[in-house]
């Protein structure tokens, strides 16, 4: 299935979860936050939240700022 991550189209197996995406991208789960279709998905739901075709994810972290 195709999902969008930070506005980029990516292919994931059907039934993939938010946690699967984080693992595939080799991201440190502690340093990020994830939205699916503009709704924040809390950390404790990453493993249970299954994605569906067309879902739009935002994966953010902290960077230097003023």
């Amino acid at each position: 299935m195709k999902i969008q991550i930070n506005e980029e189209l990516q292919e994931y197996p059907i039934g993939a979860t938010v946690a699967d995406v984080i693992q595939t991208l080799s991201l440190n789960p502690k340093f990020i936050a994830v939205e699916v279709n503009l709704e924040l998905v809390p950390r404790d739901q990453h493993a249970s939240r299954q994605l569906v075709e067309g879902d739009q994810l935002e994966v953010v972290t902290l960077v230097g700022g003023g």
Partner: peptide, 19 residues
């Protein structure tokens, strides 16, 4: 200290994180 929230880089997992 202040920090900003920005999109994660998807293709540079070895990149250093501010944190």
């Amino acid at each position: 200290v202040t920090v900003a929230v920005r999109r994660e880089r998807l293709y540079d997992p070895t990149g250093r994180n501010l944190l």
